[in-house]
Design a protein around this nucleic acid. Structure first.
Lengths: 114, 114
DNA sequence: AACTTGATCAACCGATGGGTTGATTACTCA
DNA sequence: TGAGTAATCAACCCATCGGTTGATCAAGTT
């Protein structure tokens, strides 16, 4: 079971994932941890901007940061991503149950009125 | 396979899900379709604001809207939600593969240096 | 000590987002 | 036709966001 996801944390996580730069950062970090400079290199924006993006991801608990000398490597937290899909999957589950229920209702109607 | 999700559509979908009102609307719609007035009723904001939220969800293709007289009922599109989880799941998959690979590296080191 | 390097802080700017009120469109019904 | 109702449009307000530049901090390097 996931730690306990408040509405605010869901807000933060989804908002964090809404930006293409941040999604790219996550995709990069899914391969291996990396420092701010390494992460910033491929982007046409300043290192400060990337640093801000990483703060957003960290606040959303999608990444964690450790210390290694003057470097501050970022690590992806897959469990947090799983928690996000959890919310979506619950909604889909309910919706699909309703669809199935509607199907059976239509089946019954068909039987009674041929 | 999912229709083909552009970066813009992912932006729109995640941004749409980042708002608690819109998530509540989706949760409501997962149970059954509903009109704007029905959807707006539980919220302490104006009908116009809810209408805007629904436009955001529609633009993100998370809901569709039909016509019934002067009503415009909203329907959830579970397939769209599935597409969103798709992106996340791919990232998690890669990340977890890397973790496993790291584990085997550590295993090998342990064997060589006991 | 002086210098370089990784990263953040601070202040600012333009754009976007969520909300409001007021007017308007479009359908229903008497 | 005219009144009532579902929903949207339009204009505006204020807060937040993504980005910049310039300064600052902290850890290595020589």
């Amino acid at each position: 079971m996931v730690p306990k996801w408040t509405d605010e944390q869901l807000n933060a996580a989804f908002a964090a994932l809404a930006d293409p730069v941040r999604r790219a950062l996550i995709a990069r970090l899914s391969r291996s941890p990396a420092t701010v400079n390494e992460l910033a290199e491929p982007f046409p924006i300043t290192k400060q901007a990337v640093s801000k993006h990483l703060q957003v991801l960290e606040q959303a608990r999608l990444i964690t940061r450790t210390r290694d000398g003057q470097r501050r490597p970022c690590h992806l937290d897959p469990a947090a991503l799983e928690a996000v899909t959890g919310w979506i999957d619950r909604q889909r589950l309910v919706a699909e149950q309703q669809f199935r229920r509607l199907d059976t209702v239509l089946e019954n109607l068909k039987e009674k009125e041929p």
